[in-house]
């Protein structure tokens, strides 16, 4: 049975696609056969973050409408044999995304032996976002330490608890909170909501805190998921997050202001 995980947030620009790319890559590198699906019909970007934008031939909507089969549309990742990307359509009407169509694609992926299916949700609460979460077993809620993001995350939590197949069956989705763009220095100076404050407000189990890091932009510039940047704090934090998701107990890192040593102070770094 595949485990279906939606990466969602409500608000745009908080790091859903960055997280989906890092998460799917991390799962694949740990040996799990993983598919990552872009649900943002009309505004596809997962292909760009994954670095496979020039290899897109068919997309999710083509598969749903029967113009291509799943094998033709899935793009095999260059870095991992276990990872496949299903891009969103760039041109088609959003209405082409149907619940039956999504269900069929997820079922086919399950039958193909995928361990994990990561659904990269679009921002907002419209059809694409609703369908990305509908069949999920788990939800990763991506939140920035910023008021509008926290509020939207709470709204999304309400939808996860009412507008999903699990909720309709009286079961519940496993929720995991991932805080991104965290700046311990700004938290220390009182200008940024602390991780503990966000947890207190949203009351969702924490799965990771990704520090604000220049390497996220560098990674997206080059189309390489940031989890592959083993030197960067963000890459390491994403790796911790994947391991926690797989059940390991990993202490949280990068929550305190880094004290620069004499060497770093003199020579930078």
């Amino acid at each position: 049975m595949s485990r279906i995980v939606v990466v969602t947030s409500g608000k745009g620009g908080v790091g859903k696609t960055t997280t989906s790319a890092a998460f799917a890559t991390g799962l694949a590198l740990k040996g799990y056969k993983t598919a990552v699906i872009d649900f943002d019909v009309g505004l596809r970007n997962l292909d760009l973050i994954m670095g496979c934008e020039r290899r897109v031939v068919y997309d999710f909507i083509n598969v749903i409408s029967g113009e291509a089969n799943l094998k033709q549309a899935l793009i095999k990742d260059k870095r991992s044999d276990n990872l496949f990307i299903l891009p969103a359509s760039q041109t088609r009407d959003k209405d082409a995304l149907t619940q039956e169509g999504v269900e069929r694609v997820l079922k086919d992926l399950t039958e193909d032996g995928f361990d994990f299916i990561v659904c990269d949700s679009p921002a907002g609460i419209e059809r694409g976002a609703a369908l990305a979460m509908y069949f999920a077993d788990d939800a990763v809620i991506v939140t920035n330490p910023e008021v509008s993001s926290v509020r939207d995350s709470d709204r999304i939590l309400g939808l996860l608890q009412s507008r999903t197949r699990k909720a309709e069956r009286g079961e519940s989705i496993r929720e995991h909170l991932l805080i991104t763009r965290y700046s311990p220095a700004r938290v220390a100076s009182g200008d940024m909501l602390a991780m503990e404050d966000i947890l207190e407000i949203l009351a969702v189990p924490l799965i990771g805190v990704i520090p604000e890091s220049g390497s996220v932009l560098q990674a997206s510039n080059s189309g390489v998921p940031v989890i592959l940047d083993k030197e960067s704090t963000a890459g390491q934090a994403y790796d911790d997050f994947v391991r926690r998701f797989l059940g390991e107990t990993v202490p949280h890192r990068f929550l305190e202001v880094e004290k620069k040593g004499l060497f770093k102070r003199l020579f930078g770094g």
Partner: peptide
């Protein structure tokens, strides 16, 4: 007061109301 504290208090009030509506 620090802005983070203000943010926390505003969110707590707002989210409490929105949850009741929901």
């Amino acid at each position: 007061p620090k802005t983070a504290q203000v943010a926390k208090e505003r969110l707590q009030i707002l989210i409490k109301h929105e949850r009741i509506d929901r």
